[in-house]
Design a protein around this nucleic acid. Structure first.
Lengths: 344, 344
DNA sequence: TGTTAGCACTCTATGCTGTTGAGTGCTAAC
DNA sequence: GTTAGCACTCAACAGCATAGAGTGCTAACA
């Protein structure tokens, strides 16, 4: 059966209405709200056809109709009006993107946030698959006696760092030369092609002298340092709460997850906690949003200085003794691992 | 009123039972399950006292008792047995931490994941507040005509990079000298103290010659390159689904969030999609987990090459036309911003 | 021949009711 | 001081009636 003009109109009305209301759409509603010029009865006849053709479905016998996937497909391909962004919306998008242009990765990270805000949906963004990227620069930088930072920079401004462990001793100059040779050797090639090349030939060394200082870099130095004082916060197991009976309730679960989504807020709460293992239970938490939760945190140290935090959050009903032991053991391990490492 | 030995035993039993079952605990249950040697009636009397003292609560008249915050506090301070980790548990924790020792940040990131797995709760971990960190090394690295990478390395192995825009032209040698002087000047000081110092004095230049190549760095080079081919995936607005009637249901919401939590999986799905704006609706998605969702993605390009993706995921009922326009406008903006930038 | 009004029918959602069972507090006996 | 017994309370659940939204079918109408 071919789909008539009138059926299309009805279908469009059903889709529009359902996108708005998320409720099955009935024939009476259609006839009243959208002036199609025909009665509910006629619409019912048409809807019966549309259902037979697979465009709409009934959740149950006495319910209205709901668009099927096939209807959305038709809608997207044929029916959909072009949505024109207002100048204001365009301005906001343009500005947000321009504001975060420093590096591709951060542009994309912000784009994802922006998109989720604009659409009220879950948004995602992916950075390039780098294998078509062209290598621009390679640099080896000394970190300590046995570690070297390998930095790879591509034409698109992508910067990638890895720390390598080196067994031999080395001097900074060694690294400079190696950097030059690597760069000379691979510059202009795509990353994926390099992984397939025969490597390592000897090259003549290239000795250069240095000249004078560029002072105009300095103003940026301080702001970078300040920026560096920021902490990083990692969070995992957000969906674990769904297995707890305490949170078998959309409102509670939503509240909990939204509280945790404000990372800056959590970071602040953590920073204000004392050293060592700290347990705060329910009302003891200064934060009203956490009044139903318990928080267990412990601190780890680097070179003997108390610096970072590790912990869990959950309902007041939790296995305090087991969890405390685990957290304590983990922070002890971390502290030990970073104790007086590479002291030279 | 002072709390008697017997009351403590009863309280402990209530807490233990509730931590396990999350159900209010009744006097009969207590008397049967924990051999306290007294009858339910006696327990009831004691419980009435405990309630008066604020240690336990009744959700409603004919329900059992539930521990109050005050009870947990007592439990944590006095009653709680020390939980002894098994050798196996210790081994797992120790190994996981040792396996990720390259850099503090990644150690901490993995620690958070591990903790959430072990406790089945929401875990978090915070890296050090760097202001007590001691500066070890500063390096300026050329990126292109107008950009320089400023790298700051601290004693604790923290590495921080920022890209600075430079107006004057410069040579690589300039940067090397500057790096040396900055390092000489600030090495050994804490980050926060540096932000308060008077800066910039002139220093004599320090010219060095380079020697020979260290070849043992090379084996790491390839694996780093391959590692670099990884894409980054950003995701935002996860909790937005809670405002959709489609997901006003714990099972559905849980399913959706758990699907999205498998980042690798999502990345793969995204990579397999065509260029340009692509809309897949419900059943059209090759993935069974996404059969109830629609996915809208678009690609952006860098220097004219199609590389990255941006998109949203939501129920099949979504504002296709508006969302498509937004995504399209955003990818256009990004593509433009990164078009033939810094061509030299 | 297409359109429409009317009507019987279906099914969900809602609210009311009674029942069950877990748990309590009180009292009197041990 | 402890315990058995009993009346009482309340949440949870099942059963039932009702309301309301929406349908499909039929017969009448233009």
């Amino acid at each position: 059966m071919d789909i008539s003009e009138r059926k299309l109109k009805i279908l469009q009305a059903i889709i529009d209405d359902f996108i708005h209301s998320a409720e099955p759409v009935g024939s009476r509603t259609l006839s009243k709200k959208y002036n199609l010029g025909i009665s509910p009865a006629t619409i019912r006849n048409e809807m019966a056809d549309l259902e037979e053709m697979g465009y709409i479905k009934q959740p149950h016998t006495s319910a209205g109709r709901v668009p099927a996937d096939k209807a959305y497909r038709l809608y997207v391909d044929k029916l959909m009006d072009k949505y024109v962004l207002s100048e204001q919306q365009k301005a906001i998008i343009g500005k947000k993107i321009m504001d975060n242009l420093v590096e591709l990765d951060s542009t994309i990270e912000h784009a994802s946030k922006l998109l989720s805000n604009l659409t009220n949906l879950t948004a995602f963004a992916m950075t390039p698959k780098n294998d078509e990227n062209i290598l621009k620069y390679i640099k080896l930088v000394p970190i300590d006696k046995h570690s070297v930072l390998l930095m790879i920079v591509t034409e698109t401004g992508n910067v990638h760092n890895t720390i390598l462990k080196i067994e031999n001793t080395y001097t900074e100059e060694n690294l400079n030369v190696l950097s030059k040779i690597l760069t000379y050797n691979y510059k202009g090639k795509t990353l994926s092609s390099i992984t397939k090349m025969e490597i390592i030939k000897d090259f003549e060394e290239d000795i250069e002298t240095m000249s004078r200082i560029m002072k105009n870099v300095m103003p940026n130095f301080l702001s970078t340092l300040e920026n560096m004082l920021n902490v990083h916060l990692y969070m995992d197991g957000l969906t674990n709460i769904f297995s707890l009976p305490e949170y078998y309730n959309i409102e509670k679960a939503k509240e909990f997850l939204e509280m945790l989504n404000q990372k800056e807020h959590i970071a602040e709460v953590l920073m204000n906690r004392d050293s060592g293992v700290v347990i705060t239970i329910g009302q003891e938490n200064p934060d009203t949003e956490m009044k139903d939760c318990s928080l267990i945190t412990a601190t780890y140290s680097i070179n003997g200085k108390t610096v970072g935090k590790l912990g869990v959050i959950g309902p007041t009903r939790m296995k305090y003794s087991k969890i405390t032991s685990i957290i304590e053991y983990m922070t002890d391990n971390i502290s030990n691992a970073f104790k007086l490492k590479d002291e030279d």
